[in-house]
Design a protein around this nucleic acid. Structure first.
Length: 222
DNA sequence: GCGACAG
DNA sequence: ATCTTGTCGC
């Protein structure tokens, strides 16, 4: 059974493994990860999608998905326990090996420094970046023109603000500095898009799949 | 105790 | 996240 207190302790332990410095090879394949849901008899059915795009052309190379009942309810700060299990199963179905992961949600800008982007990055030991639409915790502090998201005295993320576009909170997931996360996500946002292309594609595909699967039965974990 | 709270 | 039609705007 799910124990929130136990889950938080594990996050504190895994957070020690998060690397804030850039430590990754040249990027040629980037993956976007996202989960959509559809209602069933008694629970929520999650549809996880991992879309792999070539970089910097941002053209789709392949995508994999996995459908399964959400194992636990959504609890702020514990999102990874609800979505990571399904995302990892979809990830295992890929035939390509991405160099970088862009995850929908926060990375180190988290109460215990281990948002879903960091959680997945550490588990797979893959460079990762968190991309969120809302602030979860921390304060925004501007220094020399850069708006950092500071959590527990640490600059864990940066706010991307551009006139006429939705604000984004990018953060270190694993092995990528906040500054580099900012630069990469900025380069992966198409002219008028709100989300960087890899996540936009994963979001679009997961929603489409959820819509089509609505009404059908949901596979249980295990 | 009160308010906040990714997706 | 999802529940939901039309509607304003580029």
């Amino acid at each position: 059974m799910f124990n929130p207190a136990r889950a938080r302790l594990l996050q504190e332990k895994l957070a020690e493994q998060v690397v804030f410095r850039d430590d990754f090879p040249p990027v040629s394949l980037v993956a976007g990860l996202d989960v959509s849901y559809f209602r069933t008899s008694g629970a929520f059915c999650g549809v996880a999608v991992v879309a792999v795009l070539r970089y910097p052309s941002l053209t789709l190379v392949e995508y994999a998905y996995h459908v399964e009942e959400a194992p636990v309810p959504y609890i702020p700060g514990l999102l990874a326990y609800r979505e990571a299990p399904i995302l990892l199963k979809a990830y295992a179905k890929l035939s390509h090996d991405p160099d970088l992961l862009l995850v929908d949600g926060h990375g180190a800008t988290h109460p215990r420094g281990l948002g879903i982007a960091s959680h997945i990055g550490v588990v797979l030991d893959k460079p990762s970046i968190g991309v969120a639409k809302k602030l979860l915790t921390g304060t925004v502090e501007e220094h020399q023109g850069v708006k950092y998201v500071v959590v527990n005295g640490v600059r864990a993320g940066i706010v991307i603000e551009e006139p006429g576009r939705k604000k984004l909170y990018v953060s270190t997931g694993h092995r990528v500095s906040p500054r580099t996360a900012y630069l990469l996500v900025t380069r992966m946002r198409k002219p008028r898009a709100g989300l960087p292309e890899p996540i936009r594609v994963a979001d679009s595909l997961s929603r489409e799949l959820a819509r089509k699967l609505r009404g059908s039965r949901c596979p249980e974990p295990g």
